[in-house]
Computed example of a mutant assay.
Amino acid sequence: MSASVKDVAEAAGVSVGTVSNVLNRPERVAAATVARVQDAISRLGFVRNDAARQLRAGRSNSIGLVVLDARNPFFADVARGVEERAAEHGLTVLVANSDEKADRERAHIDLFEQQRVHGVLITPVAESLPRLQRLRERGMPTVLVDRESQDGGFPSVAVDDVSGGRIAVEHLCAIGRRRVAFVGGPLSLRQVSDRLEGAQRAVADRDDATVEFIGTNALTVEAGRDAGHRILERAPSARPHAVFAANDLLALGLLQALVMTGDVRVPEDIALIGYDDIDFASSAVIPLSSVRQPAALIGSTAVDLLMRIADDSTAVNDHVVFQPELVVRASTGGLAAR
């Protein structure tokens, strides 16, 4: 049978309250007493019951993080930023992958609620957020990551994806490309629809430029390769002059499909730009131009906002929006080392 707090108190010759202070607030206890209690803990092999402690406190020392696709290096960078900042607050991070599926997202949220996590950071699958609203009603802080809520009802940390889409296509137009294809999907993902909207705004006042939408069912390398093959099935005269991919994984898949046949040169025949500027973008066989998001900063800022909400409920109206940055490389004619 494992030792209890009462056993430790008796062995150290102190009260149960003193043992509790040593475990939770050692700065309040004399150094000699702390040493005596720690010696008793070591001799008895006492292990604190964090689950019971968290139940009494009403909240655990973990943060729940739900990402859209754990395979995407962008979300890995976001998670790194979350973990580094959470550690500064003495919190751990539980990472869950929704895989862009609403039912998996709901299951992860239910689990986090059962575990009474300190709060939830989430990139939601859909615009409707009733499950998150229930979390908030029950007093669990929730922050949207890489997404703003349509009605502004949830605090959020995001990048201006409309602006990102606009600067990507403005760059393509500036290098002389007029027939642009936007590859991405599903459009139910806010990030995708916002980037498409930005692309369309870039050509709205131009009579000589167009943006065609080529849909995908996912934001993966495989979906990018499929889109690339669909483009290659067209006659050369019907192909776009440039492709803007909704993220870098799609762009890398497109790049593979376009260059493998040897019939298409990038960027001479088709210029290509992605979004996120993941590490693989700069090391691709043809270094990939991209729209950079500050992924780790998004993660750390989300934790800051979560902690602020935990201390001040009025912070639920806080929204942080970062501006994206254009990174030009060889896939749109820039210098490979740039």
Rank of each mutant, 00 (worst) to 15 (best):
I41F: 08
V95N: 04
A32L: 10
E84V: 09
D77M: 03
L65T: 00
V82I: 07
R25T: 04
H108A: 13
V67I: 13
A35F: 08
L91W: 00
R80P: 01
V82R: 01
A107W: 03
A79V: 00
N21Q: 13
V82Y: 01
A31C: 08
A31Y: 04
I41N: 11
A107I: 02
E88C: 03
R53W: 06
V29C: 06
S62H: 07
A96Y: 13
V29R: 00
V67A: 03
R53N: 10
R71D: 08
A52Y: 05
R59Q: 13
A35D: 15
A35H: 06
N21F: 10
E105Y: 09
R25H: 11
R28C: 02
R53F: 00
V34Q: 15
L23N: 09
D50W: 04
V78Q: 05
A40N: 02
A79Y: 00
F75A: 04
L65H: 02
K101H: 15
A57S: 14
S42Y: 08
V29Y: 01
R48E: 13
D50S: 07
H89L: 14
S62T: 07
V95Y: 03
Q38S: 07
G90P: 12
L55R: 12
D50C: 02
D39S: 09
L111S: 14
R71F: 04
T33L: 11
I109L: 15
R36E: 15
A70F: 04
G45Y: 11
N21C: 06
L65E: 02
L55M: 15
R25S: 10
N49G: 08
L91R: 00
D99N: 13
Q54T: 09
D99E: 14
N72W: 06
R28S: 10
I41Y: 14
N61P: 00
R71G: 13
E27M: 04
E84M: 11
K101W: 08
A76N: 14
N72C: 05
R56P: 01
S62G: 05
A40H: 00
V34D: 03
L55N: 13
A107F: 02
G90K: 06
D39L: 05
Q54W: 11
